[in-house]
Design a binder for these strands. Structure first.
Lengths: 267, 267
DNA sequence: CGAAGTGTTGAAAGTGTTCAAACGTGGTGG
DNA sequence: CCACCACGTTTGAACACTTTCAACACTTCG
């Protein structure tokens, strides 16, 4: 039986109707309280170009802003649990979270890691299909599902953007399935590191260094391996001179082409 | 190195503009020619309730019909190849197809099987990401990509339906990933058979019998196993009394609950 | 400084894979 | 009508691989 992180749940979401009026741009410092995203925060959002919000004009963004609440999610906290009814959609603005599915006998799979700019809400189910857990101090923009629906009807741009995003994720899911089904551990890990590097490059100008917010076990459960195999594969990549591991949670890519060639078979 | 089916390609698609006028409801018997879906075929389509077309009103369906061509795809034929530019979207009306990705060294994965009612066109890429091959004599409704785009803008219902469909497929893709990553062969195969049975039940009142249009190798490449393991797993399920195999391509589900319990761990 | 959590490394074991051969079925031609 | 061939599937045995189990190292935090 596997262990779990202590499930520190944030306080239940405030009724969006009770949130303070517009014009409160400074989030409170209280880490475990929900904060209003007042004023014209959204227009200055640093990850707006990465998010679905980029589909909206200035006017439209303000309509979104009026129903959005920025919520902190501290490390280890659970934003949602599998089986619970879905009440909100989220856009991640800071930190990192993981999507976890656990089987009755403890087998675990990490469906994905969620980084700033990612949208959580593309599901056909009324209930959450996985746990959403923060693996770093994070922050999400939260919108009630019902109001999001209304917004989608009002702004065709938004609907179109969501469909585009869903199609991209569908492509990625197929790549992922191919990797899980047919790739060897080295190829899986190489591809994973490259995807992570590409992703981080969008967020900040990280050179050839990739930070790993997740632990080895999370990587293993994401790639369909065991922690031990992931660890061994890391050392193999290091011994081959493809990467360096200055710290546990920091990878330096020494030979991008070599890595790509490894993952190549897989893409 | 693995072998491939002889790649009988259908003749290049006719320019949709050159298709006969409306009012030609009877498809020609010529198996390798493209046929117009004239008249009010769509309104009487037997799988309309399963397809995205169900989102459209009668008027709207006729607009769709005007730009749709029904195309036969004989067994073994390839509807599209990975890497080719995507020029059309398709709705399958008859038969069965497989979506295949092949790696340079011959490793193969079947991303999915496509049955009547399924929509082919939810991708964020300009190029096909997999081969689309008919594993039974099939028929698809073909719409040029550009005209589909226009249609989506005109009919918000359609756009919404596509998003809904994409979300459902996203959910299914995650289930699939979990299965590939963490389930054992018996669990994988049990789940596969149950999904197939559910799917066929929508098409025709097939009792507890499930037909397998695909070969063992296709099942293997879909579940991330080898043909041999699939075969052995079939016999295991048979010896356990969960299924019977009256023919190679026919499965009779003897103990639905037992099968569900096996797959259960996985869903 | 000690303890706990996390990651690494080693040896043994289990499982699916690989390679090889036999089986059964369907189609063809004698 | 039957023999034969081709194809897909099944079965068997040896192998290679990851997993499992266990011990050890490292870092962090109390």
């Amino acid at each position: 039986m596997k262990y779990h992180l202590p499930l520190i749940r944030p306080p239940p979401p405030l009724d969006p109707m009770t949130r303070p009026d517009t014009g409160t741009p400074s989030p409170t410092a209280e880490p475990s309280a929900t904060d209003a995203a007042g004023g014209r925060e959204c227009l200055q959002c640093s990850i707006r170009h990465l998010s679905v919000c980029s589909a909206l004009s200035c006017d439209e963004v303000q309509a979104l802003e009026a129903i959005t609440v920025s919520q902190p999610v501290p490390t280890g906290a659970t934003l949602a649990r599998a089986g619970e009814p879905r009440t909100h959609v989220y856009t991640v603005t800071d930190g990192a979270l993981r999507l976890v599915r656990t089987l009755a006998d403890g087998r675990r799979q990490v469906s994905g890691f969620v980084l700033p700019g990612d949208y959580l809400g593309l599901s056909g189910s009324d209930n959450h299909r996985y746990d959403i857990e923060a693996i770093a101090d994070s922050r999400v923009c939260r919108v009630p599902l019902s109001q999001m629906k209304e917004l989608r009807q009002r702004f065709p741009h938004l609907e179109r953007k969501l469909l585009q995003r869903a199609c991209q994720e569908l492509d990625a899911a197929q790549d992922n399935a191919l990797a899980l089904a047919r790739l060897q551990p080295m190829e899986k890990l190489a591809g994973f590191l490259l995807r992570l590097a590409d992703r981080e490059a969008l967020l900040r100008p990280s050179g050839k260094r990739v930070s790993l917010p997740m632990g080895r076990g999370d990587i293993a459960d994401h790639l369909g391996l065991t922690m031990e195999t992931v660890s061994r594969t890391f050392t193999k990549l290091r011994q081959l001179g493809l990467i360096a591991l200055p710290q546990l949670n920091l990878v330096e890519i020494l030979d991008p082409l070599g890595l790509k060639q490894l993952a190549s078979n897989g893409v």
